[in-house]
C-alpha cells in the first residue's frame, strides 16, 4: 500500500517536472513580450511594463493582421483539404487492403523521404507555369496529400473494428456511408491529432511560402517574423511579442481539439 503510494507521488513529481521543463520556453516567451529588448537579452524572468510599447512598435512596423489572416486562411484550407483527402485514402488502404494497395502505400511512403529543398525548384516552376504565384492554391496544392497523413489514417484504421463494417453492410449502408457515418465519429481522436499536426505544419511552413508568396500582401506569419530579425539591430521585445502572437493559434487549435483525447470512446462491438 505505502509502496504504491510512493509510486503515485513519484508519478506526479515526474509529470510535474516534465511539464515545467516543457512549458518554460513558452512562458518565458510570453513574459518577454512584455519586456524591453535589453531585458529580454538579459534573461529577465518577470513580466515587465513594455507590452503596449512593443505592440505599438510591432503594428507600426508590419501589417500583422494581414499576415495572420494569410497564415490562418492557408493553414485552415490546407488542413481541411488534407484531412478529407488523406483520411479516406488511409481508410481505403487499410479496409480494402490487397497486395496492390499495400504496394502502392509503400511507394507513397517514399515520397516523404526526399528533402523539400531537392524538389522545390521543379515545384516552383509548375506553380509559376500555372500562374498561381502568391495564391492560397499554390500554397495548398503540394501539401494536400501527404504520405505521412495517409499512413497515419491507415495505421489508425487498424483499430476500427471489422464487425462494425460487416454489420453496417448488412444494415444496407454504402461503403462511403460506412466511412462517413461510422469511421469518422469513432476516429475522432485520430482526426484531432491529424488536424493539430497538419495545421501546425502548414502554419509554420517557411521555405515554400518564401519562394511562392511574391507579393507583400500574401506574406505569412513566418515570413513576417523573419523580417523582424533581418536588420542590423533587432528589437527583441517586439520580436517576442510577434512570435507569441504567432504561436497562439496553434495553441488554441490544440486546446479546442484535445478534448477528444479526454472523453475516450466506448466502442459498441457486439
Amino acid at each position: 500500500m505505502t509502496k504504491s503510494k510512493i509510486a503515485n507521488v513519484l508519478k506526479y513529481v515526474f509529470l510535474f517536472v516534465a511539464a515545467m521543463i516543457s512549458i518554460f520556453p513558452l512562458v518565458w516567451m510570453f513574459i518577454s513580450a512584455t519586456n524591453t529588448s535589453g531585458d529580454v537579452l538579459g534573461g529577465r524572468l518577470l513580466p515587465g511594463t513594455n507590452l503596449l510599447v512593443n505592440f505599438r512598435a510591432l503594428t507600426a512596423r508590419a501589417d500583422i493582421g494581414q499576415a495572420l489572416w494569410n497564415s490562418l486562411r492557408n493553414a485552415l484550407v490546407a488542413t481541411v483539404a488534407s484531412l478529407v483527402v488523406c483520411s479516406i485514402a488511409g481508410y481505403g488502404f487499410e479496409v480494402y487492403h490487397d497486395r496492390g494497395k499495400d504496394f502502392l502505400m509503400r511507394v507513397l511512403l517514399l515520397s516523404m523521404m526526399i528533402p523539400f529543398a531537392a524538389i522545390m525548384i521543379p515545384l516552383f516552376m509548375m506553380v509559376g507555369q500555372l500562374n498561381l504565384l502568391s495564391t492560397t492554391t499554390a500554397f495548398v496544392l503540394p501539401t494536400v496529400s501527404t504520405a505521412f497523413l495517409i499512413f497515419l489514417f491507415r495505421q489508425s484504421a487498424r483499430y476500427f473494428p471489422r464487425d462494425i463494417i460487416e454489420s453496417s453492410r448488412l444494415d444496407g449502408l454504402s461503403e462511403l456511408g460506412i466511412f462517413l457515418r461510422m469511421y469518422i465519429p469513432v476516429m475522432r481522436s485520430t482526426y484531432a491529432t491529424a488536424g493539430i499536426i497538419t495545421f501546425m505544419a502548414a502554419w509554420n511552413n517557411y521555405l515554400w511560402p518564401l519562394i511562392i508568396m511574391q507579393s507583400e500582401e500574401s506574406r505569412t506569419m513566418p515570413l513576417l517574423l523573419s523580417n523582424l530579425v533581418a536588420g542590423y539591430v533587432t528589437d527583441y521585445g517586439l520580436l517576442m511579442l510577434a512570435i507569441s502572437i504567432s504561436v497562439l493559434p496553434t495553441i488554441v487549435i490544440f486546446l479546442l481539439l484535445q478534448r477528444s483525447f479526454a472523453e475516450g470512446i466506448v466502442l459498441s462491438v457486439k
Binding site: A62, F124, L210, I211, E216, L223, S226, V229, A230
Partner: peptide
C-alpha cells in the same frame, strides 16, 4: 521588405 537570406533563396530559385 525582404530579408537578405530570403533574397538569396528567391534569387537562386
Amino acid at each position: 521588405e525582404t530579408p537578405w537570406d530570403d533574397i538569396q533563396t528567391r534569387l537562386t530559385t
